[in-house]
């Protein structure tokens, strides 16, 4: 496949510019993420207070705070709205116009998400990460930072591939809000957004560690805070990489099959 870097940069720039134009929307997104994080802090503070323990499963309350602050930061940069974008453009027919550009539609989506995540929300994400390190009294070594960066990129790929597959379903289902909610709930519970996976039974952890779900939030957050072993980090990178290949394959085949029907879905 030919890489048209000039076109991609142009698309990245204009998408970024269009996103900056929605300043209120951007501010509300930041507020929404902060509120979500605040809810988790409140819930876990209540849990620790109710149990009267200083540690649960080896994690202190400040460690839990740090964990959820990292999750909040990750949410800024790996969160996706590809599914929403696809559903809307399929339903209103604008996907036809998008497909007429000399840039492949899936590439347009990826570039749009990169513009959204890594440029607009990288500053608040960075602030969250610094705050987490301060609360956990933790440092960040070079190896740890490199592993974290690799896991963030992998989380971005996996989450957006999931989003792409859900969006693709809009060709058949028209409205995928229900599916989006189900997928979000599964990711929240099993991906480490509502609790570190160490809180689950060992057998459940063993199964989950072979799935793509912990690569979305749990592994990057734990790597960042240094709460998992080096061996586990390598395993998470290996498993995540395999899942990216599998999901890419499914997405490529799915797009090839579904793009035949996509233009007529919008009229």
């Amino acid at each position: 496949m030919q890489l048209d870097t000039g076109r991609y940069i142009a698309h990245l720039r204009v998408t970024q510019k269009a996103l900056y134009a929605y300043k209120v929307d951007m501010s509300l997104s930041v507020l929404f993420t902060v509120l979500g994080f605040a809810v988790m802090i409140a819930v876990w503070t209540a849990i620790y207070a109710a149990t009267g323990s200083t540690q649960i499963k080896g994690l202190s309350l400040p460690a839990i705070y740090a964990y959820f602050i990292v999750i909040g930061g990750l949410n800024f940069i790996v969160g996706t709205n590809i599914d929403d974008q696809m559903m809307n453009s399929i339903n209103d027919g604008s996907i036809g116009t998008a497909m007429l550009k000399p840039i492949r539609y899936p590439v347009q989506l990826v570039l749009g998400t990169i513009a959204d995540s890594f440029s607009l929300f990288s500053v608040p994400a960075l602030l969250f990460f610094i705050a987490a390190l301060a609360i956990a009294h933790a440092g960040l070594g070079l190896w740890q930072a490199a592993a974290f960066l690799a896991e963030v990129v992998m989380a971005f790929c996996i989450i957006n591939l999931f989003g792409f597959l859900v969006g693709l379903a809009a060709i058949y289902l028209t409205n995928v809000y229900g599916l989006v909610s189900i997928v979000f709930s599964v990711i929240s519970i099993l991906g480490g957004m509502v609790a570190p996976l160490t809180f689950y039974p060992q057998w459940a952890q063993n199964i989950l560690y072979l799935s793509p779900l912990p690569s979305m939030f749990y592994f990057p957050a734990s790597t960042f805070l240094g709460t998992i072993s080096t061996a586990m980090i390598w395993q998470s990178i290996a498993v995540g990489f395999v899942w990216i290949l599998i999901l890419l394959g499914i997405a490529a085949v799915g797009w090839k099959k579904m793009s035949i029907k996509v233009a007529l879905a919008g009229g």
Partner: peptide
């Protein structure tokens, strides 16, 4: 796509919150 131009009625090539000149510049590049 490099050789054709398309105007599909309601589905424009412009960006709602940006000046049309930005869409022109974008098309110049792509």
């Amino acid at each position: 796509a490099m050789e054709i131009g398309v105007v599909l009625g309601a589905h424009g090539q412009l960006f709602w919150n940006l000046p049309a000149s930005d869409a022109f510049e974008y098309n110049r590049r792509i």
